[in-house]
């Protein structure tokens, strides 16, 4: 069973002579519970590919299926719904809501899902403990280190129990020790919960943790390596 399937996906920005072909005929299947890393130089299409899979942007052509649903044919509302229920995001620049505490940032997604407050509170506490932020629930993002903020972002992505978590350069702003701890956490969550991860990265350490490594260049997947 595949969590993600892409068939002949193209993405072009601009028109005519100014057209930039960010993705060219991408065919890809990501199986359930896989831990995939996308690597490649800047401008190779990693982030664009993640955005397409996550329903944050639409392909110019081709088909994208996530959790058995055709993402490329969805309207804005349906895309919001699939992002809310089936996909978790971890962004490069932490991207937490600054005025909410760690717990409230995690609960925010659950509130969008309509989960009652008692369950939200309990679940957010458990998940923050799982990512190693026990006792830091009520701290605001500004009171947390970069690594801790990224763990909150991971907890927020996890809390909706998504089929897929997409992480765009999650370690780019972290020091090597913190980055390693974060990747170990992601890998642990992958092993424990069977959640599918697709991570774009430049970081060789992150690539080293991947089960499958996809190398991209000029909008194409040029290499697909099964590691372990």
């Amino acid at each position: 069973m595949s969590t993600v399937t892409l068939h002949k996906v193209c993405k072009t920005f601009g028109e005519g002579k100014l057209a930039v072909h960010a993705l060219r005929d991408i065919d890809l299947e990501v199986g359930n519970g896989d831990f995939v890393c996308l690597s490649g130089p800047s401008g190779s299409g990693k982030t664009t590919l993640l955005n397409m899979i996550g329903g944050l942007d639409r392909p110019t052509s081709g088909e994208i299926t996530v959790a058995n649903q055709r993402v490329d044919q969805m309207d804005k509302g349906e895309l919001a719904e699939i992002r809310l229920r089936n996909i978790g995001f971890v962004f490069q620049a932490y991207n937490l809501i600054p005025v909410l505490s760690a717990r409230e940032n995690v609960e925010f997604v659950m509130q969008l899902q309509g989960i009652p407050p008692e369950i939200r509170h309990q679940k957010s506490k458990e998940i923050l403990a799982e990512v190693g932020l026990n006792g830091m629930e009520d701290r605001k993002p500004a009171e947390l280190s970069g690594g801790q903020q990224q763990r909150v972002a991971v907890a927020r992505a996890l809390v909706s129990e998504p089929a897929l978590i997409l992480a765009d350069e999650p370690t780019a702003n972290l020091d090597s020790v913190t980055a390693e701890k974060l990747v170990e956490l992601l890998r642990h969550l992958n092993d424990e919960h069977g959640i599918t991860f697709v991570i774009s990265t430049h970081d060789k350490m992150v690539m080293g943790h991947a089960r499958r490594l996809l190398k991209m260049h000029d909008g194409k997947i040029i290499d697909d390596i099964q590691q372990r």
């Binding site: 919001a80 992002r83 995001f89 969008l112």
Partner: peptide
């Protein structure tokens, strides 16, 4: 940027 994040997390513009 923050509104973009909220939209990415699945929030509807209406909310």
């Amino acid at each position: 940027r923050e509104f973009g994040l909220m939209l990415a997390l699945g929030s509807r513009p209406k909310r």
